Amino acid sequence: MFVNLLRFRFKDGVSDEEQAEVLAAMRRTASLESSAFGVVGADLGDPAEGFTHAYLSAIPDLEAFRRYTWDPVHLAGDELILGKLAKMSAVRFADDDPAISQAMYAEVAAKQEKFPAWSQEVARLFGE
């Protein structure tokens, strides 16, 4: 099982309607058949950390992760979501073979290569 937890904050000026649209897109992605379960909602952590919302998806195995990464719903969500966010952080972990992370990050590297604008936007959100 691979778990991806993203904490984020919207950019100033993103309307309530736009926020609802982003959260709906995240819920669609978290509900993909490749995800064992997912949750999207208010971040209940320390407000001083600057995050207002969180996204969590649990992916059962590497094959499901590949489907999740390349699913058209996920890709369309990325286009809608990323430009509306100001900041994001991630906690990622797996309970399986530690080598699985190498394969998963190789899949992410392939996505970065195919979609360089996506890669740049993600780097911006993580402050890289």
Rank of each mutant, 00 (worst) to 15 (best):
N4P: 00
L5G: 09
R7D: 01
R9D: 14
D12R: 06
V14F: 09
E17D: 12
V22D: 05
L23G: 03
L23S: 03
A25H: 00
M26A: 02
R28Y: 00
R28G: 00
T29W: 00
S31E: 06
L32D: 11
S34P: 11
F37S: 11
F37R: 13
G38C: 07
V39I: 08
A42W: 03
D43K: 04
D43Q: 13
L44R: 11
L44H: 10
G45I: 13
E49A: 14
T52A: 09
T52G: 14
H53Q: 04
H53T: 01
A54S: 12
L56N: 01
S57D: 15
S57M: 14
L62G: 10
L62T: 14
E63I: 15
E63S: 15
F65D: 01
F65G: 02
R66C: 09
R66K: 14
R66P: 06
Y68W: 13
P72V: 05
P72T: 04
H74I: 04
D78E: 12
D78R: 08
A86H: 13
A86Q: 14
M88C: 11
A90Y: 08
A94V: 12
A94E: 14
P98V: 10
P98H: 08
A99G: 01
A99D: 04
I100F: 02
S101R: 08
A106R: 07
A106S: 09
A109S: 15
K111D: 12
Q112A: 12
E113H: 13
A117R: 14
A117N: 12
Q120A: 15
A123V: 01
R124M: 00
R124D: 00
F126D: 05
G127D: 03
G127L: 04
G127M: 03
E128W: 01
E128L: 03
